[in-house]
């Protein structure tokens, strides 16, 4: 138990702790993104496969259960749509998965269970990471009124238009995903969409919200909506 031994052990502990912290930063900033991009590509692949395997053509000649008079409920943890937001990048497309559990948000955007389905009257509410796990909503504050949020469920394109600049609120403010969202400026029922993410960028004290209304829909067969570039 010499002084030399104590000093050496202490330095080793400090160096180890420093290395651990650096590794955790690398993991959070870089590795979660790599894993998330991979997982999101996987979910997009799953959707494409599903949609090409069971195309809308089935309406005519499937003798089985009555086709889509009542749409299938979204399954928790399963992707069901793809979202495009041209403002966040011309190639920005993310899978939308049912539920907002932590593991869901590692693989894509999460649809709040219990909020409206895509395109119907009510509020289709979606949450996504601002930072880490692929940074899907990194540029959220750049969204402006009039920006398009385009979604497809494999049969229909839904084009929503954002109505106001991102709104900052507290995490407990669940009124923002109400069928007629509180503070949104909408004053009657409609086909709305809500996006939520964290605010500030690296913190969790607040939430950033944006609202949009359904502007138009068109069948997939008619091609991509004009709101999408390319």
């Amino acid at each position: 138990m010499t002084v030399r031994w104590i000093v050496r052990t202490l330095s080793e502990i400090c160096v180890t702790a420093g290395t651990l912290i650096v590794l955790l930063v690398v993991y959070t900033l870089f590795w979660t993104g790599v894993r998330a991009d991979d997982a999101m590509d996987g979910e997009l692949g799953t959707l494409r496969e599903q949609w090409s395997a069971a195309p809308a053509a089935g309406h005519h000649d499937t003798p089985g259960p009555a086709p889509s008079a009542r749409p299938r409920p979204y399954e928790a943890g399963r992707p069901f749509a793809v979202m495009y937001i041209p403002r966040l990048g011309t190639d920005w497309s993310k899978p939308v998965i049912e539920g907002t559990a932590t593991d869901v948000l590692k693989r894509g955007l999460g649809h709040y269970a219990g909020t409206a389905r895509l395109g119907v009257v009510g509020n289709f509410a979606v949450a996504g990471h601002r930072r880490t796990y692929g940074d899907p909503f990194k540029d959220f504050p750049r969204l402006r009124p009039g920006d398009a949020v385009v979604l497809t469920d494999g049969t229909t394109w839904f084009t929503y238009r954002i109505d106001r600049r991102p709104y900052t609120t507290l995490p407990s403010d669940i009124g923002v995903i109400d069928p007629v969202p509180r503070a949104s400026g909408y004053n009657g029922p409609g086909r709305y969409l809500t996006l939520t993410t964290c605010e500030p960028e690296w913190g969790h004290s607040h939430r950033l919200i944006t609202w949009a209304h359904l502007d138009s829909t068109q069948p997939l067969a008619q091609g991509r909506p004009s709101a999408l570039p390319g």
């Binding site: 955790l24 993991y27 959070t28 979660t32 539920g99 907002t100 559990a101 932590t102 948000l105 999460g110 709040y112 269970a113 949450a127 996504g128 990471h129 601002r130 930072r131 880490t132 796990y133 909503f137 609120t169 995490p171 407990s172 403010d173 669940i174 923002v176 995903i177 939520t196 993410t197 964290c198 690296w202 913190g203 969790h204 939430r207 919200i209």
Partner: peptide, 14 residues
């Protein structure tokens, strides 16, 4: 990592 604040993106934790 979930203990860090970057995961809280939902209102009322969803």
């Amino acid at each position: 990592e979930p203990l860090l604040p970057f995961n809280d993106v939902t209102v009322d934790q969803g």
